[in-house]
């Protein structure tokens, strides 16, 4: 594993992503759902909404870093949380 150059923050990041994927897989199996059509006009399941949330969050973080600088980066996560809530409620 040494060749992968692990660090604690990146490890935490991947553990969170993995936990999210496992959680959503279990949810999808235990509580089957019907896809719904939201503000984007496309059919989405919970998994799709998770994908939209994660991808969007990556761009939010980059935009925040580009505009505000690295010192204030944790605040970007707050915006991501808000964005996630919006996606899961309305998309």
């Amino acid at each position: 594993m040494a060749w992968m150059a692990w660090t604690t923050p990146t490890a935490i990041f991947f553990v969170i992503i993995a936990l999210l994927l496992v959680t959503f897989s279990v949810l999808a199996i235990r509580f089957p759902e019907t896809p719904r059509r939201g503000v984007l006009g496309i059919e989405t399941t919970r998994g799709d909404r998770l994908f939209i949330t994660l991808l969007g969050s990556a761009f939010i973080n980059l935009a925040w870093l580009g505009v505000m600088g690295a010192a204030l980066q944790p605040w970007a996560l707050l915006i991501c949380l808000f964005y996630a809530a919006v996606v899961f409620r309305w998309v």
Binding site: A2, W3, M4, A5, W6, T7, P9, T10, F13, F14
Partner: peptide, 19 residues
């Protein structure tokens, strides 16, 4: 995942990385 790990570090070779 390795690329992600690289992105947050610097290296001068020999598989030694700096945050």
């Amino acid at each position: 995942m390795t690329v992600v790990n690289y992105a947050f570090q610097d290296t001068f070779g020999n598989n030694v990385f700096f945050w």
